[in-house]
Design a protein around this nucleic acid. Structure first.
Length: 445
DNA sequence: GGTACTCACCTTAGCTGC
DNA sequence: GACCGCAGCTAAGGTGAG
């Protein structure tokens, strides 16, 4: 059998210290200094660190308190998610000058399939250098580009292209790094095994017990041993990667499979009433995004993290997809009622999945479920916690969406989420890196 | 001692229906 | 009727990425 498909050329473009670099555009006096963007509260984490801050061992997802200890001279900035979204769109506009085949991974990285652009624009490395120059000249930002025949190798190549940090200084990177076709294994096998997509701390520990340190070690172990050690999916996946095999296409329009919001509180909550207020707020945010996406969800999941950091999830699956706050609350409220908050709750979350066409009419199953729930044996003691997912809410929801579209997100919201300073609504990325120092929390009583 | 948020995917266990 | 195997679904927890 012959394969006439042309060898693909995939680029992985990764912005360098993206959030910090965007902040420095408006604060040039901070260039060259250690700068950290992230949550400013005691429970915040680092979202991005400048390369100067990385010299001190500060890195993403590190607790803010640890970062302050390691680098007390760093400038800590709270971050502006909306601004990063806007700049990210501008970066993608530059990508689109080269190819329409773009798969965003996050605000600061994306895969580009430039196979079709090679004849016009040159080879992958040439296109990579062109994109780097455009991003620098138009936006004043720096990025690193990996070039390879597949997504997995392109991602690793962009890491190789990045600036390097030693405790003494920051060394410039290659900017563009290409994994030359035919030399994939030579590039891949010496790398540490945690370079593979899918090897996190837990898998790394298991692999280390098997004596695996590098990608080459993992490959030598063989697929059968890996499947027996890590399970079928992970074993096969990692073995394929260790052979440099990755046939996944650059997907330009991936359908979302779940939508959720979760929030860590500045202080632990101990009372059901406080938690329910937060639950209403989160449910409203999830419902709003579901409607924005034009979908409904059948499965609703409540997530609770206790003061001791143990986390539980409780979920329920409805007969038909819903997209209103009332319906979501009526689904997750009974789940919350079974959680004892007295040890202290530091986080709650609401997640929606199992998407379908939103159906706001009650189906027979829902009616049956509601009827069963209202029988004497199952009667809810507190009527306020039992909201029917009825059509009564549909018109109100349409009106809410219209008001928010016209007057902004905070124009209207659940009364229970009202505070002295106004509505506290949930928006994606609003509390991306933990609670702020001064953010208002629900009061006791 | 500290440890965010969002999303995807996997594993395991239990239940139900055939 | 009891039991078994299987498939499909759901719930819960875990892992990993960015």
């Amino acid at each position: 059998m012959t394969n006439h498909a042309p060898r693909r050329t995939i680029l992985h473009v990764d912005m360098d210290a993206f959030y910090v670099s965007v902040e420095l555009l408006s604060r040039p006096e901070l260039v060259g200094r250690p700068v950290v963007v992230g949550g400013t509260g005691p429970r915040g984490v680092v979202a991005a660190a400048s390369y100067e801050a990385r010299r001190f061992g500060v890195y993403s997802a590190m607790p803010g308190s640890t970062a302050r200890r390691l680098c007390p001279t760093a400038v800590f900035l709270p971050g502006n998610h909306d601004l990063y979204v806007r700049v990210s769109r501008q970066v993608h506009e530059i990508f689109r000058e080269t190819t329409p085949f773009i798969e965003p991974l996050s605000l600061d990285e994306a895969f580009l399939d430039v196979t079709g652009a090679r004849r016009l624009l040159g080879d992958g490395a040439t296109i990579g250098r062109h994109i780097r120059e455009r991003v620098a000249s138009v936006l004043g930002l720096s990025c690193s580009v990996g070039v390879a025949p597949n997504k997995f190798l392109a991602k690793l190549a962009s890491v190789a292209a990045k600036p390097r940090v030693t405790p003494e200084r920051v060394l410039p990177g290659f900017g563009v790094f290409e994994v030359v076709p035919g030399r994939e294994i030579e590039f891949l096998h010496p790398l540490p095994v945690q370079a593979l997509w899918g090897v996190g701390p837990a898998t790394l520990e298991r692999l280390q017990r098997l004596g695996v340190k590098t990608v080459g070690d993992l490959n030598a172990l063989g697929e059968v041993s890996l499947v027996s050690a890590l399970g079928r999916a992970s074993g096969r996946h990692l073995f394929a990667l260790s052979c440099a095999h990755d046939e996944r296409a650059v997907e330009t329009d991936r359908a979302m499979k779940s939508i959720g919001h979760e929030e860590t509180f500045a202080r632990d909550l101990h009372e059901s009433g406080e938690l329910r207020t937060e639950l209403v707020r989160l449910s409203d945010g999830v419902a709003s995004r579901l409607r924005g996406a034009g979908v409904g969800a059948r499965t609703l999941t409540l997530k609770v993290r206790f003061a001791g950091f143990t986390t539980i999830t409780r979920s329920t699956t409805l007969a038909s997809p819903v997209a209103t706050a009332a319906a979501i609350i009526s689904a997750v409220d009974p789940l919350l009622a079974n959680v004892d908050p007295t040890p202290g709750v530091r986080l709650i979350g609401v997640h929606a999945s199992n998407f379908g066409e939103p159906v706001e009419q009650l189906r027979f199953d829902d009616l049956l479920a509601q009827t069963l729930a209202q029988t004497p044996d199952n009667e809810t003691p507190d009527n306020e916690t039992s909201h029917p997912a009825s059509t009564d809410w549909t018109e109100a929801t349409v009106a809410i969406d219209a008001i928010r579209q016209r007057f902004g997100d905070t124009a209207i919201g659940p009364a229970s989420t009202m505070s002295a300073t106004g509505l506290r609504l949930v928006r994606r990325g609003a509390q991306q890196w933990g609670p702020d120092h001064d953010r208002e929390q629900p009061k006791r009583g």
